[in-house]
Design a protein around this nucleic acid. Structure first.
Length: 558
RNA sequence: GCGCCUGUAGCUCAGUGGAUAGAGCGUCGGCCUCCGGAGCCGAAGGUCGCAGGUUCGAAUCCUGUCGGGCGCGCCA
């Protein structure tokens, strides 16, 4: 249990006690308000604060100051060993200060179970969740435009895992669409020495693929006018190329530390009948109708602004039809929850997918679609347009070669997923040495160095911190170290990572200040060294776990 | 026109109704005889786009408005 949760319990108990004793009147309607506990911005206000008195003032028809006084009094006279010192402040806040002993006792759990430290026991633990992200079609290498989805998705998965959820990372792609044929046609054209078609693919990678195209795919055929079998050849070459590209994409993602558990093709959904069965299910429920020769889903019945075509008038199912089939396929695998991470440009398709899920009888809330904001990539102040077909893009591999995966991860982790951001590549390169991620990693490496020094000097960390942290430098750092589980808990709830990067930076700052004020390795005072070594080791574990949660390395030296 | 996202320091961005709105970078000024200077300390820099409203309390919630982005296909 987090210290915050303990504080909440104390306040709840104090409220009950004050009500029972008559110090506070009962709630008029018999309800119980949620007790909110926050970390005050100003450390002089203690470790926690609650606004309960302010919120009870109206229903209890008492001045908030008087309610706060009653609550503080009840906390002071509560049973058991005192953990919190309560004071009334401002317009009616109750400020709560942890006793030093409570902080010391709490920190002992870090070094006894380092792997568990920071994992949050929150609602949703044990849930089986499918997270589908990136899902770029393999018609070209991943671009920096795909980077955000890759990092945001993987970071989300890591956060959910820290919350005890069972996560499957899934990549969905189309290996049989018209774009694949276009890719094949472009390659064959180049292989035969012709120009790439106007609407074909033009990147350097297309030339590379053309040069490697085996002769069996028609590379050596005459350069003259199109033969009847060109279409088939383009398909075959396209499939060959897209599988090579897909393998390259997988390698790029692995280089980022992003591993997908499932690679799913749109074609397989059709081949296995998922799309057909899902359409039948909608039809049976009366959610479909025919018009202009096409089959429509009555999406407006669920609040959409227009109905959506499922089967085109030419008999071909739409991409939306595949989406519907995919929902049923995913849920058939036993997931409790589906998360999709899409670019902001797909927001118009969110409602129809959720509507279809609802129409098929699923819990609408089980299909969660998160949208990432737009990333404008800029080089030297000029925006880079991203087009695979035009061949004007920066690949993810190139970006990583320039700024490195740790800095890139930090960049995306420290920003909200749904905000638009500007990414100046030259600036990122220039600033990479000043990147906050190195500041945090440096703190970790510095501690590792201290621990090595201590070992050389024959100093050993204290087994327990109880009654060991004497001074202000120690207790200041210890209080920040103790917050990790709360930060993770909030991150899981919000499905966001910014708070983790903010916290890691704050912890590193606190450590650097501690390092300045407190000598850790001091052979003349082994007792004090032992206590400080234990604290510093707990700090190291906390930094490593925070970074690890983000998929960022925690180096022993740098 | 309609819908969604967004507007916070010179720049890039945090800030899930609370107390004096923060960080990094940039700028300016300091700090090692000492466990890693990729560090530490300090300064300047803000009408939280604007206007109303709700609330004891609003950067945060609501309405309107202005600016930016993205959508509004029998494309994917």
């Amino acid at each position: 249990m987090t210290l915050r949760a303990q504080a909440r319990r104390s306040v709840e108990a104090a409220w009950r006690q004050a009500t029972t004793s008559g110090a506070l009147p009962p709630m008029p309607d018999g309800t119980v308000a949620d007790v909110t506990i926050e970390r005050p911005a100003n450390p002089e206000h203690g470790d926690f604060a609650t606004n309960l008195a302010l919120r009870l003032a109206r229903p209890l028809r008492m001045p908030p100051g008087a309610i706060a006084a009653a609550l503080a009094d009840a906390i002071a006279t509560g049973p058991g060993e005192p953990v919190l010192k309560a004071t009334v402040a401002g317009p009616g806040f109750v400020n709560l200060a942890l006793t030093d002993a409570a902080v010391e006792a709490f920190l002992d759990t870090i070094r006894s179970e380092p792997a568990a430290w920071g994992r949050a026991a929150v609602p949703g633990s044990g849930r089986r969740v499918n997270v589908e992200f990136v899902s770029a079609n393999p018609t070209g290498p991943l671009t920096v435009g795909n980077a955000r989805g890759a990092f945001v998705g993987d970071l989300l998965c890591r956060v959910l895992e820290a919350g005890g959820q069972q996560v499957t990372r899934e990549y969905y792609f189309n290996d049989s669409g018209a774009q694949v044929q276009k890719l094949g046609a472009s390659i064959i054209a180049l292989a035969r020495g012709r120009e790439v078609p106007e609407d074909g693919y033009h990147g350097d990678y297309v030339e590379v693929l053309a040069a490697e195209l085996p002769a069996a795919f028609g590379a050596g055929a005459p350069a003259e006018a199109s033969e009847p079998d060109d279409e088939a050849a383009a398909w075959a070459a396209g499939r060959w190329a897209s599988e090579r590209i897909r393998a390259g994409i997988e390698a790029s993602l692995e280089a980022l530390g992003v591993h997908f558990d499932v690679w799913k093709t749109e074609g397989s959904l059709h081949a296995e009948g998922w799309v057909e069965r899902a359409v039948e299910r909608l039809r049976a429920g009366g959610h479909l109708y025919e018009q202009d020769g096409a089959l429509w889903f009555r999406s407006t019945a669920f609040g959409d602004d227009k109905d959506r075509v499922v089967i085109r008038s030419n008999g071909e199912p739409t991409y939306f039809a595949s989406d519907i089939g995919y929902v049923t396929e995913k849920l058939s695998r036993g997931f409790d929850h589906l998360i999709y991470i899409w670019g902001a440009d797909h927001h118009g398709t969110v409602a129809r997918v959720q509507n279809a899920a609802q129409a098929m009888g699923y819990d609408r809330a089980a299909v969660e679609i998160l949208l990432t904001g737009w990333v404008s990539f800029v080089r030297d102040g000029v925006e880079i347009s991203m087009s695979k077909r035009a061949g004007t893009f920066v690949t993810l591999d190139e970006l990583l070669a320039e700024i490195g995966p740790d800095a890139a991860r930090w960049f995306f982790a420290s920003r909200g997923a749904n905000v638009n951001i500007d990414f100046d590549i030259e600036l990122a390169k220039k600033q990479s040495n000043e990147n906050p991620v190195y500041y945090v990693q440096y703190a970790h490496a510095r501690i590792a160095s201290i621990l090595r020094r201590a070992a050389e000097a024959g100093l050993v960390a204290a087994p327990s911190l109880r009654d060991a942290l004497g001074g202000a430098p120690e207790l200041g750092l210890a209080r920040i170290v103790a917050r990790l589980p709360e930060v993770v808990e909030d991150a899981v709830g919000a499905q966001e990572t910014q708070a983790i990067t903010t916290y890691a930076t704050e912890l590193a700052t606190a450590f650097h200040a501690f390092y300045r004020d407190a000598k850790v390795v001091d052979a003349t005072d082994p007792g004090r060294s032992a206590a400080r070594l234990a604290l510093v080791d707990a700090t190291r574990i906390t930094l490593a776990n925070a970074l690890g949660l983000l998929g960022i390395s925690a180096p022993e030296s740098m």
